[in-house]
Each structure stands twice: as C-alpha cells, then as structure tokens.
Nucleic acid binder design. Structure first.
Lengths: 160, 160
DNA sequence: GTCTATCCTGTTATGTTATAACATACTTTC
DNA sequence: GAAAGTATGTTATAACATAACAGGATAGAC
C-alpha cells in the first residue's frame, strides 16, 4: 500500500496535510534552517491540493493573506521548499507540487492528468536511464520523470 | 552501436546532419506536409549542434538570415518540427534539440550536461513508469525523461 | 490558366514565467 | 546590544510563449 501514488486515490487529506507539515517542521529543526511564516504558508498552499500550482498562483494566495506580493517572495519560498525536499517542481507544467513522501530522499516520477490537472507522485522505478547513462559515462545528478495522460477518473468520460 | 547516445560520442557530424535533413525531407513528402524554407532552416540550425537551443536563439539565427524576426515565426516552425518528430523539446531547459533518430517513433530520454550544455538522446529503456502507471490505472500519452549531470568530458575537469 | 481553399508567414500586442540587484528587517551568537 | 548571517520587501527587467488578425504562397479542382 505504501507505494501507491497518492493523488488518484481517496485518502484522509487533512491528516495527509498535517503530517506533511509536521515532517517539514521537524526536518527544518533538525537541519537548523528556518521554517518561516512565508515558507510554512507556501507549503500549506501546495499541500491543499494534489495538483501543481504555478509560482504566480502561490503568490496570489500569499498576497491575499498579506504575506508578500512580488514574484521573488514566492520564488524564494518555493526554492527553499524544493531544496529541502518538501516540494517538487514539475518541469512540464512550470509548476510546483508538495512532495507526497517528505523525508525520504528520492527520485520522484510524476503522472500528470491533462484533463483534471491532478498530479500523482510515484517512485522512479529506476528507469533504464541509469543503465544508459553509466554505459555512456554520463554521471546523473538529478532526474526529471514526468508522464502526461489521463487519470483513471478522467478516462471514464469525466474529462473535458 | 546503433543504440549509443549521440552527442557525447565523436561522429561524422556533417553526414549526421545531411541524413537527418534527407529523412525529414522524405518524411514530409510522404506525409504530404510542406517542408518550407523556414522549417528547413530551423531544423538545420538545431542540427548544427547536439545542444539544445532556446526558441529565441533559433529566432536570432533566422532573423540574421532574413527569415523572420518575430517570436511566432520561430515557435511555429519549432512546433511543426516537434509535431513531425524531427525535434524534441527539453522541458528542463525550455529549449529544443534535433532528434537523433528521426523517423523512428519513440519515447526519448535525454542526458543534459550542466557544464557544457550538450544533450544526448537515448531510448527510454521503457521505465518502470509504465508499470506504476498501469497499476494505478493512469493512461500515459507522453513521457518526459530528462537526466541532468556531467558528461564524460566534463567529469574530467574540462567543464567550466 | 485561373479560381478557390488551404496553409504558411508577418506583425502587433500582450501574457506568463523567472531572476538580478539592492534595501530593509529579523534572529542568532557572542 | 553589536556583529554576522539569514530572510523579506521592492524595483526593474529578462526570458519564454501565444492570441489574433492581415497578407501571401501553394496546391488542387475545374
């Protein structure tokens, strides 16, 4: 069960959020980095859905709460959260999503529903990439694995 | 040999370009689509290196040759070439690269050297993605597989 | 060969995503 | 409470991308 991609599955989202915030809180304390108001709120905003949000969407939310109105505020908070592994950037969408498994160091893979925008995170079932790479002597530092398509719900005709 | 990623390997680049142009030419004829001057030149520009070029880089080159100076000209040509499978978009870089194996319908994977910018194309050694996806009922339409790191040359300290 | 439909290109204008650079404020340490 | 380091606020602009419409080339019908 622990390896199911979240996002396409019903789950207790409130507890999902709470535990993610707690994990982030503790990780920051352990690492001696500041989990400031803007950073907390940015993470909460992303945790509220399993969809990816653009930096400017996040910024609009922050701004509505008086937490910053200029792009660098959002980009800095997002960069921090990505650095700490609490958030992933979805290259395909130029957008950000809360990590479904914070704490675990991992190479995530994403499934992006083009109809409803839901993004599910899975483990990189580590790709033949590694093999191809080492074969040619390439030293991988970071991977981007994103699949776009239709989630189970949207396949049934619910997708517009 | 035919499965080695190009880009990190020495090869006869002139013949590499010529055969790619010929393949594109023929594919367009076969499909009844027009391989116009702008499209040809755009593909040639991308074929000149195994690095990815931004749309505005391509545009600058086109403009220098009097082939169009406004963004839509470049974006349209690039969109056409991507549609026809002659060019791939590298999401990580917001940039474009000529396909190393035009003609073959494929899910490419890329290795991006962060030092020298060279991008090598490999086959998607078709990923555990497919497995994860079908397990959760997700229907994949398109994949983005990009690894960033250091190419063999740049690992040896040659990379600036 | 010329008409017509289609496709391609040119251009204006604007939208979206992202960062450099500098000023100010907070927090931690001593 | 002063110094050092870290975070935020703000201005300005860079980089990437597309909508919408006008004009020109091309290809197929006749």
């Amino acid at each position: 069960m622990s390896n199911d991609p979240l996002g396409f599955c019903a789950h207790d989202h409130a507890s999902c959020m709470r535990s993610a915030m707690k994990a982030a809180q503790e990780a920051c304390a352990a690492r001696g980095v500041q989990f400031t108001k803007v950073r907390q709120r940015t993470l909460e905003i992303l945790l509220e859905s399993h969809a990816a949000l653009g930096a400017y969407d996040v910024l609009a939310r922050l701004n509505a709460e008086g937490l910053g109105s200029k792009p660098p505020v959002a980009y800095r908070a997002l960069a921090f959260l990505v650095e700490q592994g609490f958030v992933h950037r979805i290259e395909r969408l130029n957008a950000f999503i809360a990590c479904a498994r914070p704490g675990a160091d991992h190479d995530p893979a994403f499934m992006i529903c083009r109809a409803c925008g839901t993004v599910a995170e899975a483990e990189t079932a580590s790709v033949g990439l590694k093999a191809s790479a080492s074969q040619s002597g390439f030293q991988i530092e970071q991977t981007v694995i994103e699949a776009e398509g239709l989630c189970p719900t949207c396949q049934t005709g619910a997708g517009t």
